[in-house]
Design a binder for these strands. Structure first.
Lengths: 337, 337
DNA sequence: TTGATGTGTGGGAGCGCTCTTACAACGTTG
DNA sequence: CAACGTTGTAAGAGCGCTCCCACACATCAA
């Protein structure tokens, strides 16, 4: 039980060979007499040997772990109540496990926490960072860059910097929503945007407004939300008092869209008969909502996996130019619009 | 940027002292001349030194990380769509970060993956394991125990073993639900249980049935669900055909309860006027549901934090008798019952 | 004075591993 | 038959750190 773990040395002694030979068998196995290999394997079996990862890391300078950093301005422990982060985590974990790499979860919601993250990486506790940073003013990306930590972002950085990222064409997503609502014959269309200090929100909104303008609706009543259900409900209330005769709403994420639907129903309005609602993300609330949400799909899991893929590639052969991948949104038509 | 990181040796040279002294300053700082301390601190500043965690771990035999293992039978990457795991993660992360410990996330949904988890821990890549294992037949707890890995479970193990855990009094939760429905004057009460091969489900159901029997309802129509929305909807349909005149349903989690509410509404039944619904967990769907769910609260975040606390305590002074903590459920009355 | 005790510092071993180097044994070639 | 690869193995340095031990020096009781 609490006996000390056998080392390479122990295995070597049992097998009657040198440490080096055992190491070769354990790893690449290049140029080792097959017979000896067998002997060594038996010795490993017999001693119950397991290589010590830490010792290996010390010399290889690789830990086999990456940091998955959630750098929300919002922060706090309630980030995980947003289905978004669960999806990111799922995508990352799912990809990494096939590559023998493990994610360590970190929250960077304060300056102190951010420093800790940078230190953690600089100390070599992880080989690189997967950064989910929503706020464009977040100093973390540039700090990681400075520290020379291999990193990939989810969402393009606030200002241009040589760092890879995955992102989605949020503008195209906004356009998709506008096109769908207009094509459905709606003409009193309002929108609940995401927080305007988030690039994704800006883009979704810009895309939506552009398309609306092109369709002949230069002005779109807009209320800014905060990506939460509460903010969505509040926004819907305001929209209802400001434009009582609206017949369609585009909400910048599903959480807000669902809340908006609830508010509309409470007001005795039918969805989609009286008011059509389009959400964004295609996450769990879109399906749980009654009626189910017509929404713009963001392939979060695939994007997260891609992000991990980019990081591993950078780790594999460092010094390449940072690569980025942009995903296309997709309209998912359900019942709400 | 890609210059090699400074080591203790470098700092020592700059400060004109020995490696050992610098180490003392960096760590416990016991018995070092204040003046020298200052010199060393300056040297650290000047060199931009950061201790190498891996090297430290090699000698201390501590990594400062723990594994957070989700050992679902269900498994797959969709575990994170269940709000439960997000809450566990939030609770764990929130507690650990205050202690300089970082969780590495692992999924153990196959035998292969389980072996990998055990190896990972045996290799000393993490100091201990936080195991969220729902299936009582899960071999992981005993395998970790055998391997001598400090571990704490979420939920009591399938068969008794010397391992700490946190859990909730699920029977009491079931009773709370029954009491509430009976007190509300319902007398055609059915239930959608969780998967019966999960102890928590068994207990919730047993508690519910016991209380019902004590209230004079020895027979309770029951359909087994799978803790997912789909299974909840299917179960509600069956219940509706088997007992068309039911006036209350207790669902073993909120996800199923929400789905049940949807099905009831689709059938033209009013909630709670015609049918009262009680859920379990008090997670996000309980609030998103219309009407909002009356439910039994499981303090997942607190339980997860407690689990982490128990593990750290075990790591701190090993060899103590494993401790466990049981939490009490709480009835949360909202609109659905 | 002498020993006992305590404090601050340096030297050096050693954690378990990988990887370079050296070397032995064996062909193969001109 | 000397010169030269080729292949398989051992030896040993070294990754960056902690911690034990030795030692110099100061302090204090006997």
């Amino acid at each position: 039980m609490s006996r000390v773990a056998p080392t390479l040395e122990d295995v070597a002694r049992v097998a009657g060979v040198s440490r080096a030979t055992v190491s070769r068998v354990v790893n690449g196995t290049r140029n080792v007499d097959p017979e000896l290999q067998e002997t060594v394997r038996n010795a490993i079996e017999q001693t119950g040997y397991t290589p010590n990862r830490v010792a290996r890391s010390l010399v290889t300078r690789r830990t086999g772990t990456v940091a998955l950093v959630i750098s929300g301005a919002g922060g706090g422990s309630d980030v995980f109540s947003d289905p978004f982060f669960g999806r990111v985590t799922a995508g990352v974990v799912d990809f990494l496990r096939g590559h023998g790499v493990h994610p360590v979860l970190m929250l960077a919601d304060s300056d102190h926490a951010r420093t800790e993250v940078v230190e953690f990486l600089r100390q070599g506790s992880a080989d690189g960072a997967l950064l989910v940073s929503t706020h464009p003013a977040d100093p973390l990306p540039s700090r990681l860059l400075e520290a020379g930590v291999p990193s990939v972002l989810y969402a393009r950085p606030g200002r241009p910097m040589p760092i890879g990222y995955v992102d989605m064409d949020h503008r195209a997503g906004g356009r998709l929503a506008a096109d769908h609502l207009v094509a459905a014959g709606r003409y009193n269309i309002a929108t609940i945007s995401g927080p305007m200090d988030v690039l994704a929100s800006q883009d979704r909104h810009a895309g939506f407004r552009d398309a609306m303008a092109r369709h002949g609706f230069p002005y779109v009543p807009t209320v800014e939300g905060g990506f939460t259900a509460e903010s969505g409900a509040a926004a819907m209330h305001r929209l209802l008092t400001e434009c009582p005769d609206l017949d369609a709403v585009f909400a910048a994420n599903d959480l807000m869209a669902q809340a908006a639907v609830d508010v509309l129903l409470e007001h005795g309005l039918r969805v989609p008969e009286d008011v059509a609602v389009v959400g964004f993300d295609d996450s769990a609330p879109a399906l749980a909502c009654r009626p189910q949400l017509t929404t713009i799909r963001q392939p979060v899991e695939r994007m997260a996996a891609q992000m991990a893929d980019l990081l591993l590639a950078d780790l594999e052969k460092p010094g390449q130019r940072p690569k980025s991948v942009i995903f296309e949104p997709e309209l998912v038509v359900r019942a709400s619009a």
